[in-house]
Amino acid sequence: MMRISLVALAAASTLMAGCGGSSSSSTQTGDRDDTVAVAIPFTATVGTEPFACGQLYNSVGTTSADVIGQDARLYVHNVRFVTNDEREIPVTLSGDIQGAATANQKPGEGLEGIALLDLRDKSEGCQGDDANPDYYDTVTGTAAIRNESIRALRFSVGVPARYNHIDAQGTQPQTDSETGEPIPGTLAVGPLAAAGMGAGGMHWSWAAGYVHARLEVQVPTGASPVFYIHLGSTACSGEAIHGERTCEHGNQPDIEVTGFDPALHAVNLDLLTLLSGNDVTINQGGPGGCMSGLTDADCVGIFERLGLPFPDADPDADHAPVFQAITF
């Protein structure tokens, strides 16, 4: 199976990175001795069951509804480790052999390193025969953690504000409204670009921004056939083509996965936890589910669990973490 081999590969490299002593020169990519290659796998589950496209899950949400997996994709950026003494060590996301962006990863660290993670497993089959050709679920890069004790992993979900409003079709960079000069770095590359439809379903064309996370389940008994969770920045103004667009609500949650051991763990996104405050069979306004609209009451429970502000939501409420470290 393709997926198993990928995970195994990722795990192996992680193991080598985390446990390797001074012998392994092949994993040493930086010029400092403590820089090692890292691979951080991501998974999605509904409770304990792996998320798969077309798979039926029971007891989801406040009404224990049946749902069928449809989509699980997210962007992450600003990936970094946290040491036991609370220092942050950034992960520099890698590019291709020339250091250029790949289809899934824009190289760099902090706000520059952006990965698109696709957590769908198409082996069970949703509609369309090849909807997920470039299956990809691992953040790869380097980090100076060889001799560090890591206590947690932190990352932000979504596309950072600086890149969120660029032309996703990759046809033009943003330009300065006064001078007309192109703004460097704003031509969409890698996971931020896709010909035609723009970032292959991960772009919110109507709002000139990316879909930070796209999580969808079908609800056979629902008021709306699909319960969408589309995380995107809202309450925005300013000209996107001139790099002047800013959003009151970025909706790029910063996540801490505690107890994360890069040698042992993957990051798991649990949709059961994320949906635990919602009745997925009803629609409380706007499109089915939550498309981040400020008047869509279906977003309250979801935003609370992601620690995001939302009208009538309590972002500090105590909920089980949506992202957790799991061994694999």
């Binding site: 369309g128 909807a131 079709q169 439809m197 723009g198 379903g201 064309s205 109507w206 499109p287």
Partner: peptide, 24 residues
């Protein structure tokens, strides 16, 4: 060029209904 993407690929509402699942 930005706008035409919306009727073709938009899902709220669905107009032409093209998605990554059926675009090929």
């Amino acid at each position: 060029e930005q706008q035409i993407v919306i009727p073709l690929f938009g899902i709220d509402p669905i107009e032409h209904g093209i998605s990554e699942a059926n675009q090929n």
